[in-house]
Amino acid sequence: MTTIIEARNITKTFGQEKNQTVALNNVSIAIKANEFVSVMGPSGSGKSTLLFALGGMDTLNEGRVYINGVSLYEMDDNRVADFRRKNMGFVFQNPTMLPSLDILDNIMLPSFEDYKNDKSALTQKAQNLMKLAGIEGTENRKITEVSGGQLQRASICRAVLHGPEILFGDEPTGALNSKSSEEILDLFEELNKNGMTILLVTHDAKVSARANRVIFMKDGALESELYFENEDHQTRLALINQKMSDLGI
Protein backbone atom coordinates (compact mmCIF):
# COMPACT_ATOMS: atom_id res chain seq x y z
CA MET A 1 0.00 0.00 0.00
CA THR A 2 1.22 3.55 -0.77
CA THR A 3 1.70 6.22 1.87
CA ILE A 4 -1.13 8.74 1.65
CA ILE A 5 -0.31 10.97 4.67
CA GLU A 6 3.17 11.73 5.81
CA ALA A 7 4.32 14.10 8.54
CA ARG A 8 8.03 14.80 8.94
CA ASN A 9 9.35 16.28 12.19
CA ILE A 10 6.38 18.51 12.86
CA THR A 11 6.46 20.80 15.88
CA LYS A 12 3.64 23.00 17.08
CA THR A 13 3.73 25.30 20.08
CA PHE A 14 1.10 27.56 21.68
CA GLY A 15 1.72 30.76 23.63
CA GLN A 16 4.79 32.95 23.95
CA GLU A 17 8.19 32.23 25.52
CA LYS A 18 7.59 31.74 29.27
CA ASN A 19 4.06 30.45 28.87
CA GLN A 20 4.84 28.35 25.82
CA THR A 21 3.23 24.90 25.56
CA VAL A 22 4.60 22.33 23.16
CA ALA A 23 1.59 20.59 21.61
CA LEU A 24 3.53 18.56 19.02
CA ASN A 25 7.15 17.80 19.62
CA ASN A 26 9.06 16.73 16.50
CA VAL A 27 6.39 14.24 15.42
CA SER A 28 6.82 12.05 12.33
CA ILE A 29 4.15 9.70 11.08
CA ALA A 30 3.17 7.89 7.89
CA ILE A 31 -0.32 6.57 7.13
CA LYS A 32 -1.00 4.24 4.24
CA ALA A 33 -3.93 4.40 1.88
CA ASN A 34 -7.07 2.61 3.09
CA GLU A 35 -5.82 2.40 6.68
CA PHE A 36 -8.29 2.97 9.53
CA VAL A 37 -6.16 4.73 12.15
CA SER A 38 -7.12 5.88 15.60
CA VAL A 39 -5.05 8.29 17.70
CA MET A 40 -5.46 7.95 21.47
CA GLY A 41 -4.17 9.87 24.41
CA PRO A 42 -5.20 11.86 27.45
CA SER A 43 -6.46 15.45 27.26
CA GLY A 44 -3.63 17.77 26.23
CA SER A 45 -1.55 15.00 24.66
CA GLY A 46 -1.66 16.76 21.26
CA LYS A 47 -3.90 14.34 19.39
CA SER A 48 -6.36 16.95 18.06
CA THR A 49 -3.47 19.25 17.20
CA LEU A 50 -1.93 16.41 15.19
CA LEU A 51 -5.19 15.88 13.31
CA PHE A 52 -5.57 19.61 12.48
CA ALA A 53 -1.90 19.72 11.45
CA LEU A 54 -2.27 16.73 9.12
CA GLY A 55 -5.43 18.25 7.63
CA GLY A 56 -3.71 21.55 6.82
CA MET A 57 -5.97 23.47 9.18
CA ASP A 58 -3.30 24.93 11.43
CA THR A 59 0.12 26.49 11.16
CA LEU A 60 3.31 24.65 12.12
CA ASN A 61 6.44 25.87 13.82
CA GLU A 62 8.53 23.27 12.06
CA GLY A 63 8.23 20.23 9.81
CA ARG A 64 6.31 19.26 6.72
CA VAL A 65 3.11 17.40 5.92
CA TYR A 66 2.60 15.55 2.62
CA ILE A 67 -0.71 14.30 1.29
CA ASN A 68 -0.20 11.98 -1.65
CA GLY A 69 3.27 13.47 -1.94
CA VAL A 70 2.02 17.08 -2.07
CA SER A 71 3.56 19.34 0.58
CA LEU A 72 0.54 20.94 2.28
CA TYR A 73 2.19 23.87 4.03
CA GLU A 74 4.05 25.09 0.97
CA MET A 75 0.79 26.01 -0.76
CA ASP A 76 -1.03 29.30 -0.26
CA ASP A 77 -4.28 29.39 1.72
CA ASN A 78 -6.56 29.25 -1.30
CA ARG A 79 -4.76 26.24 -2.83
CA VAL A 80 -4.81 24.41 0.52
CA ALA A 81 -8.56 25.05 0.72
CA ASP A 82 -9.10 23.69 -2.81
CA PHE A 83 -6.87 20.70 -2.09
CA ARG A 84 -8.72 20.00 1.14
CA ARG A 85 -12.11 20.17 -0.55
CA LYS A 86 -11.07 17.72 -3.23
CA ASN A 87 -9.07 15.22 -1.17
CA MET A 88 -10.22 15.33 2.45
CA GLY A 89 -13.30 15.21 4.59
CA PHE A 90 -13.64 16.31 8.21
CA VAL A 91 -15.98 15.37 11.05
CA PHE A 92 -15.70 17.17 14.39
CA GLN A 93 -16.90 16.34 17.90
CA ASN A 94 -19.81 18.75 17.71
CA PRO A 95 -21.58 18.88 14.40
CA THR A 96 -20.42 21.89 12.42
CA MET A 97 -23.42 22.85 10.36
CA LEU A 98 -24.48 26.26 9.12
CA PRO A 99 -27.75 27.49 10.65
CA SER A 100 -28.79 29.37 7.56
CA LEU A 101 -29.08 26.21 5.44
CA ASP A 102 -31.27 23.12 5.78
CA ILE A 103 -29.75 19.65 6.21
CA LEU A 104 -29.52 18.73 2.52
CA ASP A 105 -28.10 22.12 1.46
CA ASN A 106 -25.54 21.84 4.28
CA ILE A 107 -24.45 18.43 2.97
CA MET A 108 -24.25 19.62 -0.62
CA LEU A 109 -22.64 23.03 0.00
CA PRO A 110 -18.91 22.15 -0.40
CA SER A 111 -19.47 19.96 -3.48
CA PHE A 112 -22.04 22.13 -5.22
CA GLU A 113 -19.70 24.20 -7.35
CA ASP A 114 -17.97 21.06 -8.70
CA TYR A 115 -21.33 19.58 -9.72
CA LYS A 116 -22.89 22.83 -10.97
CA ASN A 117 -23.84 21.27 -14.32
CA ASP A 118 -25.20 18.08 -12.85
CA LYS A 119 -26.84 19.08 -9.62
CA SER A 120 -29.52 16.41 -9.86
CA ALA A 121 -26.75 13.77 -9.78
CA LEU A 122 -25.29 15.47 -6.71
CA THR A 123 -28.69 15.63 -5.03
CA GLN A 124 -29.24 11.95 -5.77
CA LYS A 125 -25.80 11.07 -4.43
CA ALA A 126 -26.42 13.09 -1.26
CA GLN A 127 -29.80 11.45 -0.71
CA ASN A 128 -28.25 7.98 -1.19
CA LEU A 129 -25.62 8.83 1.40
CA MET A 130 -28.29 10.11 3.80
CA LYS A 131 -30.11 6.80 3.36
CA LEU A 132 -26.88 4.91 4.06
CA ALA A 133 -26.37 7.06 7.17
CA GLY A 134 -29.96 6.47 8.24
CA ILE A 135 -31.11 10.10 8.09
CA GLU A 136 -33.35 9.98 5.01
CA GLY A 137 -36.41 12.23 5.40
CA THR A 138 -34.51 15.03 7.18
CA GLU A 139 -33.50 16.79 3.95
CA ASN A 140 -35.66 19.88 4.41
CA ARG A 141 -35.29 20.18 8.16
CA LYS A 142 -33.51 23.00 9.92
CA ILE A 143 -30.38 22.00 11.86
CA THR A 144 -32.26 22.74 15.08
CA GLU A 145 -35.01 20.27 14.13
CA VAL A 146 -32.89 17.07 14.25
CA SER A 147 -31.07 15.20 17.04
CA GLY A 148 -27.33 15.49 17.74
CA GLY A 149 -26.77 11.99 16.31
CA GLN A 150 -28.64 12.83 13.11
CA LEU A 151 -26.68 16.04 12.78
CA GLN A 152 -23.38 14.18 13.20
CA ARG A 153 -24.41 11.68 10.52
CA ALA A 154 -25.28 14.61 8.27
CA SER A 155 -21.79 16.00 8.96
CA ILE A 156 -20.28 12.69 7.83
CA CYS A 157 -22.43 12.76 4.69
CA ARG A 158 -21.12 16.26 3.95
CA ALA A 159 -17.53 15.13 4.61
CA VAL A 160 -17.68 12.22 2.18
CA LEU A 161 -20.11 13.44 -0.50
CA HIS A 162 -17.35 14.63 -2.83
CA GLY A 163 -15.56 11.26 -2.50
CA PRO A 164 -12.40 12.27 -0.60
CA GLU A 165 -9.58 9.79 -0.20
CA ILE A 166 -9.13 10.64 3.48
CA LEU A 167 -11.66 11.21 6.24
CA PHE A 168 -10.48 12.95 9.43
CA GLY A 169 -12.56 12.68 12.60
CA ASP A 170 -11.93 14.65 15.81
CA GLU A 171 -13.80 12.79 18.57
CA PRO A 172 -16.69 12.24 16.13
CA THR A 173 -18.72 10.26 18.66
CA GLY A 174 -17.73 12.33 21.68
CA ALA A 175 -21.06 14.12 21.96
CA LEU A 176 -23.29 11.15 21.13
CA ASN A 177 -25.03 8.47 23.14
CA SER A 178 -23.75 4.88 22.84
CA LYS A 179 -26.35 3.78 20.29
CA SER A 180 -25.66 6.71 18.01
CA SER A 181 -21.90 6.17 18.48
CA GLU A 182 -22.17 2.56 17.34
CA GLU A 183 -24.11 3.58 14.26
CA ILE A 184 -21.56 6.25 13.34
CA LEU A 185 -18.68 3.82 13.76
CA ASP A 186 -20.50 1.29 11.58
CA LEU A 187 -20.69 3.98 8.94
CA PHE A 188 -16.95 4.65 9.22
CA GLU A 189 -16.19 0.96 8.83
CA GLU A 190 -18.43 0.82 5.78
CA LEU A 191 -16.61 3.80 4.21
CA ASN A 192 -13.22 2.24 5.02
CA LYS A 193 -14.26 -1.01 3.37
CA ASN A 194 -15.09 1.04 0.28
CA GLY A 195 -11.48 2.29 0.12
CA MET A 196 -11.45 5.46 2.22
CA THR A 197 -8.51 6.18 4.55
CA ILE A 198 -9.78 7.12 7.99
CA LEU A 199 -7.93 8.94 10.77
CA LEU A 200 -9.80 9.37 14.04
CA VAL A 201 -8.81 11.07 17.26
CA THR A 202 -10.48 9.68 20.37
CA HIS A 203 -9.97 9.01 24.04
CA ASP A 204 -12.52 6.18 23.94
CA ALA A 205 -11.00 2.68 23.73
CA LYS A 206 -14.24 1.29 22.25
CA VAL A 207 -13.88 3.65 19.29
CA SER A 208 -10.22 2.83 18.82
CA ALA A 209 -11.02 -0.87 18.84
CA ARG A 210 -12.76 -0.39 15.47
CA ALA A 211 -9.49 0.77 13.85
CA ASN A 212 -6.71 -1.37 12.26
CA ARG A 213 -4.01 0.77 13.79
CA VAL A 214 -4.00 2.61 17.11
CA ILE A 215 -1.40 5.32 17.81
CA PHE A 216 -0.81 6.40 21.42
CA MET A 217 0.26 9.96 22.20
CA LYS A 218 1.56 11.61 25.33
CA ASP A 219 2.96 15.12 25.90
CA GLY A 220 2.99 15.97 22.22
CA ALA A 221 4.89 12.89 21.09
CA LEU A 222 4.00 9.47 19.61
CA GLU A 223 4.59 6.92 22.38
CA SER A 224 3.56 3.64 20.86
CA GLU A 225 1.17 1.93 18.48
CA LEU A 226 -0.87 -1.23 17.96
CA TYR A 227 -1.84 -2.96 14.71
CA PHE A 228 -4.92 -5.17 14.45
CA GLU A 229 -5.87 -7.69 11.82
CA ASN A 230 -8.38 -10.34 12.73
CA GLU A 231 -8.74 -9.87 16.50
CA ASP A 232 -12.26 -9.72 17.82
CA HIS A 233 -13.56 -6.54 19.45
CA GLN A 234 -13.04 -7.68 23.07
CA THR A 235 -9.43 -8.70 22.43
CA ARG A 236 -8.70 -5.36 20.76
CA LEU A 237 -10.27 -3.58 23.71
CA ALA A 238 -8.19 -5.53 26.20
CA LEU A 239 -4.96 -4.86 24.28
CA ILE A 240 -5.70 -1.14 24.05
CA ASN A 241 -6.48 -0.87 27.76
CA GLN A 242 -3.33 -2.82 28.62
CA LYS A 243 -1.22 -0.51 26.45
CA MET A 244 -2.76 2.56 28.02
CA SER A 245 -2.07 1.18 31.45
CA ASP A 246 1.56 0.42 30.47
CA LEU A 247 2.02 3.96 29.16
CA GLY A 248 0.34 5.48 32.22
CA ILE A 249 -2.33 7.16 30.08
Partner: peptide, 8 residues
Protein backbone atom coordinates in the same frame (compact mmCIF):
# COMPACT_ATOMS: atom_id res chain seq x y z
CA UNK B 1 -16.70 25.47 9.25
CA UNK B 2 -16.63 26.76 5.69
CA UNK B 3 -12.84 26.76 5.69
CA UNK B 4 -12.77 23.21 7.04
CA UNK B 5 -14.91 21.97 4.18
CA UNK B 6 -12.69 23.63 1.60
CA UNK B 7 -13.99 27.16 0.99
CA UNK B 8 -11.18 29.52 -0.01
Amino acid sequence: ILKSVGFT
